[in-house]
């Protein structure tokens, strides 16, 4: 896949990948649609859509409550909800819709199968963690945390920030990217020898698609969970 030509365009002196922008925009619109249509006619007695939305909010709040102290969960609730919904739909959309131009350049796939997207979200988590730490503990206590349990721990603490950033972003990218790549491989197998391979490949394709859908949900969950863990680490004083 990496040999395929990539469609790019220039805007404000920055290079954009068409695939990322288009699929990101599609996921954006999907999230807005889901949230918009489930939040119509809110009532004290919830109906179908509202039930789903409230369940989802309770679910993401539950993830955050697992690690962030109860008093601070409310401040990260919206962020956790948006992140989970966006990542979940990003992970799943590439399993069902993949569009390429005639020349072979992909313009529509999972946004999370590109490291730049996942690393962006990972970076966002790290920045929120830093800001939350400063906001909760103040500059002095926040940066003193890097020198716990003793001063020589400082390089390890800083290095840990980078590894957290990389592993958080690359974990989700690896799973989704490999999932889509294998889907492509199975597709190539299916079209290689006509109708026979098509029939053989169909159940494999279906099984892998189902498994990838499962993995996509798990990865979205894991991303939000780990993000809240990283944030909660910055919210408390280390002993």
């Amino acid at each position: 896949m990496s040999d395929d030509p990539v469609s790019t365009f220039q805007f404000l002196g920055l290079t954009f990948s068409t695939a990322n922008v288009v699929s990101g925009l599609v996921v954006f619109l999907l999230v807005v649609a889901v949230v918009f249509f489930t939040s119509r006619k809110l009532a004290m007695k919830p109906t179908k859509g509202q039930n789903f939305l409230e369940w989802l909010i309770d679910f993401t709040n539950g993830i955050l409550k697992g690690s962030i102290p109860a008093g601070d969960v409310g401040k990260f609730g919206l962020w956790g909800f948006t992140l989970f919904l966006f990542l979940f739909l990003s992970n799943e959309i590439g399993l069902f819709i993949q569009v390429a131009t005639r020349s072979g350049a992909t313009i529509m796939r999972s946004p999370t199968s590109d490291p730049i997207a996942t690393l962006t979200f990972s970076l966002m988590t790290m920045m929120i963690a830093q800001f939350a730490g400063v906001w909760k503990l103040g500059y002095k206590a926040h940066f003193a945390n890097y020198m716990k349990p003793f001063v020589f721990w400082l390089p390890i603490s800083i290095f840990e920030e980078f590894t957290n950033f990389l592993t958080l972003g690359l974990r989700i990218f690896g799973v989704i990217f490999s999932g889509e790549m294998l889907l492509g491989v199975i597709w190539n197998l299916a079209v290689s020898h006509g109708i026979v391979t098509m029939i053989i490949a169909l159940p494999i394709e279906m099984a892998w698609q189902g498994f990838s859908a499962f993995l996509g949900a798990i990865q979205a969950f894991v991303f939000v969970t780990l993000s809240s863990v990283y944030i909660s680490q910055k919210l408390e004083l280390e002993e």
């Binding site: 805007f11 997207a117 962006t120 979200f121």
Partner: peptide, 15 residues
Amino acid sequence: QTLYFGDSLFYIISF
């Protein structure tokens, strides 16, 4: 994979 930093900006803004 090639990384396009414009995308990063795009994702942050859209998020």
